[in-house]
């Protein structure tokens, strides 16, 4: 029963979504199903919050290695939750100056805005910027001209890296008037527009069919591994 019931829910919801796509009369049912997902995800947020709290509180109480960081995490979590929920420092809307809580939760000057602007903003930008370092080390390590395919890939990388920067204009700009398509930026555009597009489309078609087959397996109940069944 524990397996059958979720299976029925998944199948019914799935079939409704498929059928409703072709039947305008069922459009509302489809929209409702989509909304149900959002509601479930929102409820699951509470479970997520509980998971964070439980895990880090245990870590602190057991004095496990690095428990100090858990204290920081817990403080950060609770403070953000508090200032966001209670709109700390949010100025009221100009139309209702004497009503607190009318302003936008992330209005400029509020505590949540402040934490966003001066903590999340720089931290996430830094994390993303780390990518530059990892790309460099991956380029050094992985781009080896081991065989013909790898050499072709290497050649393409050279053209794109040069064509996508000022170096392309600098090196081949002098004959751009006569042969615009043979300049590095021109070749880059051609590689991206022709070879890359062709490859991307092929991959996309494969993926789309894969998605269709996976969906069908789940709808027909053939693949129950997401429920942890034996056939996984």
């Amino acid at each position: 029963m524990k397996r059958t019931f979720p299976l029925i829910i998944a199948a019914v919801a799935g079939y409704v979504m498929v059928v409703a796509y072709f039947m305008p009369a069922l459009q509302q049912v489809r929209e409702d199903a989509e909304e149900w997902f959002n509601i479930l995800a929102a409820i699951a947020m509470i479970l997520g919050g509980a998971s964070i709290l439980g895990m880090h509180l245990r870590k602190v109480s057991d004095r496990r290695a690095g428990w100090g960081f858990s204290v920081v995490t817990l403080l950060g979590f609770l403070v953000t939750l508090y200032v966001g929920l209670f709109k700390v420092g949010v100025p009221p809307m100009p139309e209702y100056p004497d009503r607190a809580w009318t302003g936008e939760y992330i209005a400029q000057g509020s505590a949540l805005w402040w934490s966003f602007e001066y903590i999340i903003y720089p931290i996430t930008a830094t994390m993303f910027a780390l990518l530059a370092f990892y790309v460099a080390s991956a380029a050094f390590r992985a781009f080896r001209a081991k065989n013909l395919e790898a050499m072709l890939l290497l050649g393409t990388a050279f053209v794109i890296l040069l064509g996508r920067s000022y170096a392309g204009t600098l090196l081949t700009g002098w004959y751009a008037e006569e042969y615009p398509n043979l300049t590095l930026p021109g070749l880059t555009d051609m590689i991206m527009g022709v070879f890359n597009t062709a490859g991307q489309r092929a991959v996309m078609i494969g993926i789309a069919l894969g998605i269709a087959a996976t969906s069908l397996k789940i709808l027909l109940g053939i693949d129950r591994s997401y429920l942890g069944s034996r056939n996984g």
């Binding site: 781009f143 290497l154 920067s165 170096a167």
Partner: peptide, 17 residues
């Protein structure tokens, strides 16, 4: 910065090879 980063990447690829 983008130009010099690209050139460095090319240099690294050449060096790696």
């Amino acid at each position: 910065p983008q130009l010099s980063a690209h050139l460095l990447m090319l240099a690294l690829i050449v060096l790696g090879n």
